[in-house]
Each structure stands twice: as structure tokens, then as C-alpha cells.
Design a binder for these strands. Structure first.
Lengths: 251, 251
DNA sequence: TCGTGTGAACGATTTCACAGCC
DNA sequence: GGCTGTGAAATCGTTCACACGA
């Protein structure tokens, strides 16, 4: 029960060891994007207020988010856009190289392979895999799609030099668990799963889920409640009037 | 300051008027998916424990989530899978019809148009729009891609009968704001934006954001911290050892 | 004076723990 | 005896409000 034995408690004010809320991490890419735009426009300094406005959050949140990583701003002036961008990159690990393997080269896999978000911030699409004989061998961007069976030997050859840091699953739901097993066998310990399936994996493997239809479902929930309000008793939904800007950016 | 004037406060225990945490709503689709699998497997009853295990959350959360909508279970037995599934559908508005328009028919738009998540739970892809002359006129599934310019007249003709309930933006980031403006002009008051851009919209328009690369960036954050741990001082990241199952399903 | 950085207050969500019902 | 439903406690995240430094 000492200050250090309890996870999350921190006796030292050492910024590098502070626990960062997941909510903060998710906002960093949004700030980063806005900083890029500002820098492209030649803006060298920005206040938490201005940044908050553009990100659709409030200024206190912006300041608190950054303060978790250190003191990046200048009182009375604001934040230096270039310096701040560099610090966010460092916090997100965007200053390293993260080779990605995408498994499942349907429309979604292709969209991901070609997307900016998968080819910047340190990410590099390093391998594309599928099992469909009509897909294997085709080219997507500058890469040729290989058969999934090649993944394990590839990852173990060469002392693991070709092993991807992150595996992305963009297959139909039915194939997701099998693909995950292959990724684990290849020694890939971080998986981002776009298939709507909860994966069962050995402890120590990191998984993050992206479900393309959740936000649609959240929307239908909100619309139903709204409709309910229009046609009957007042029912406060998730959101009250006035702050209808929901979803990720926007508080 | 009365019980009803304060948003979120509720004097009445009326279940239909209770404020539902967004965190709960986001979990409902996951429960729903698991229930479908169980039902297909012929399972008629499930305990909160079992469901929690499969969803990667804890049992108390499952029970609390459902209790917000009413008492669906039977003490000593568990939940009836069919009945529970029906209740979740009702809560999510999946018992109504939600016509969707997808704007931006690249790989992502095509993936969404063909995905199960956009053709079940009450959703129906009702229109596909783009501005690229090589894309307009092509068929995707059973629909022909139309020019974005057709959206506004279509939505206003016929007394609004053809107006989509939800607009989905799957264009490049640069086009997102313009498309959003068109959707608003068409009278579409709910937007799900897959483009990495914060949208500026009139009050009253609901927006939800899906950023395909955030989870990748969260992953690189986690991996950096991990690497930091391996090569230096102990730093508690977002997650401690033992509960590495992060991302959406999984607490 | 202006705007950051941050304790402290607040609000939301999760977890605990157990009473109540089947 | 087993499992739900739920107040109460604990935890986590947001917002306030102001001291402090440029």
C-alpha cells in the first residue's frame, strides 16, 4: 500500500513516470493534426484557448493534457507550435519507426494501407497479407500482397528483423481469431482489430479494437431518444440541448 | 435547481427517462454481438458472469449496464438471451429503420457500404454519393453511385421521404467540411465522420467521429512506454501488467 | 497583462458488497 | 444456492479558479 506499490499512485512528480489517462492519449492525435495545419499556415504560437476551439474541447482540458507530459508552454504567450508538435510526437512514440502488417486486404485493408494515418507519425505499412488466391500477388501501393502462411517464417527469419511491431486485422469477423493466432505465433505482441470480434489472446499481447459501426449505433440510440422526446415525455438522453457535439473530438 | 430543471438529475425512478452513460451505450453493441452468437449456438440463458467473460469486462458492469434500462434478468438464473437481445435492440433504436447515405466512395466507403454493421440493426444503406466522374455511375452492391449534387434535391423532394437519417462521410480530410455543409443543406442532422477533421456545424446537428488511426497511435504510445520500461526506470503506463486487454471491448 | 500550470471541487463511471428473489 | 439489481464507496476524468511567471 506504499506510494509506489499501488499502481497509478506516484510519489515523485517526475513527469516521465506519470500515469496518463487514456482519454488524454486519444486527444493527442487531434491536437497534433491541428498543430500541423497551423504550422503549414506559418503560425508559430498558439494559446490553449485557440487550440481548444479548433479541437472542439475546452481550454482547461488542453492545458491539463499537456501538463501531464511537462511544461511546454510560455505563460503570457502560449505554446510554440513546432516545439509542442515535437513533444506530442515524442509522447505518442511517433519519433520511432513502427512497421505495420495488415492482414485482410479487402476494401477496408486497402483503405488502411493507402491512408495517411498508416504512413505517418512513425507508422510504415511493411506487409500486406491475405489468404484469397485472387488477392495474393496483387499490388497495393508499392507492396505485393503475400499469403498469410508467409507471415510466421518471415517474422522469425533474419533474427526477427522483418517482424512487424503491430498487426492490423481487417478480415471478416469469422477469420479474426485465427489471424490473431497467426500474428501471435509470428511474435507480434500488439494487435489492432477492425473485425467485430473480441479476441482471446495470451496475457502480454496488447489489443485495441476499432468497430466501424459503433458510432452509427450510438447515433441511432441518440436519435431514438430524440424521437421519444418529440413524441412523448421529456427524457434526458446522453446529451442535453446545447452541447450536441459528441463523438471523439468534442470533449 | 429543481429535480427536473437540472439536466441529468432525475426525481423519478422511471427507467425510460434515466440518463444513460455514453460508456454504457458503446458496450451495448458488444453485448448484442455476443448474444447473437450464443443464440445461434442454441443457448437460451446466460449469466452476467458468462457474458462479462466473453465481452472482456466485469460482471458488475454488465449488470449495471442492463439495470439502467430495466430489470431484464431472473435472479438465480441469469438473462434470457432472446429477450435480452430484443431489449438491447430497442434501447439502441435498432427496432426502427435508419436510412444511411455514404458520401465518398473510395475503398473506405465501399468497405462501409458492404459491411454487415451498416446493413443490420436497423441500418440500411440508402444512397452512395461521390464527385469523381469515374466513380459516379458505378455500382456498389445493389446501388448506383450518384453525384453529390443530387443529394440536396433528392432530400427535399417527395416531402423529404428520401432524406437519409444519418450521413456518413468517408472522403479525404480535405473534402469533409464541404460534404458536411452539403449534408446539412440536405437537412441531414446526424453525421458520422470518418475523415480526420473536426467539423464546424450549426447547433443541433449531431456529429460522431471515427478516426481509423487513433488506436494505432494509442498502440505506439503504449509500446513506447513499454520500451521505456524495458530500458530504464519503471513507468506505469496507461495500463499495469495483468490487464493488458485495452481498447473498446475490455472495459 | 496575459495565459500557463495546477490544486481543489465537481461530475461521471466503475467496482464493491450485499439484500432480495427465484 | 445462485445470480440479479442496486445503493454506497472508490476511482477516474473534467472543469474551476487562481497563483505564478513571462
Amino acid at each position: 500500500m506504499s506510494a509506489i506499490s499501488r499502481r497509478g499512485r506516484q510519489a515523485t512528480p517526475d513527469v516521465r513516470a506519470r500515469r496518463i489517462p487514456e482519454a488524454t492519449i486519444v486527444r493527442l492525435p487531434v491536437y497534433q493534426r491541428i498543430l500541423s495545419e497551423l504550422r503549414r499556415a506559418g503560425v508559430t504560437t498558439v494559446s490553449s484557448e485557440e487550440l481548444a476551439e479548433r479541437a472542439g474541447v475546452n481550454a482547461a482540458k488542453v492545458r491539463k493534457d499537456f501538463s501531464l507530459f511537462g511544461s511546454f508552454g510560455t505563460r503570457g504567450t502560449g505554446y510554440d507550435t513546432a516545439y509542442l508538435a515535437g513533444q506530442i510526437d515524442r509522447a505518442l512514440g511517433a519519433d520511432r519507426e513502427w512497421p505495420i502488417a495488415i492482414v485482410g486486404i479487402g476494401n477496408l485493408g486497402r483503405a488502411l494501407a493507402n491512408s495517411d494515418g498508416f504512413s505517418s507519425h512513425g507508422f510504415r505499412v511493411a506487409g500486406l497479407f491475405d489468404v484469397d488466391p485472387f488477392t495474393v500477388g496483387t499490388r497495393v501501393g508499392s507492396l505485393t500482397v503475400r499469403h498469410l502462411d508467409e507471415l510466421v517464417p518471415l517474422a522469425h527469419g533474419d533474427g526477427g528483423a522483418q517482424r512487424p511491431a503491430i498487426g492490423v486485422i481487417s478480415t471478416p469477423a469469422g477469420a479474426a481469431q485465427t489471424v490473431a493466432d497467426v500474428l501471435v505465433a509470428a511474435g507480434v505482441a500488439s494487435i489492432v482489430n477492425f473485425a467485430p470480434r473480441v479476441l482471446h489472446l495470451p496475457a502480454g499481447v496488447l489489443v485495441r479494437y476499432v468497430d466501424l459501426s459503433v458510432e452509427l449505433q450510438v447515433m441511432s440510440f441518440l436519435l431514438s431518444r430524440h424521437a421519444g422526446v418529440l413524441s412523448g415525455a421529456r427524457a434526458p438522453g446522453v446529451l442535453g440541448e446545447g452541447e450536441l457535439r459528441a463523438g471523439r473530438p468534442g470533449s
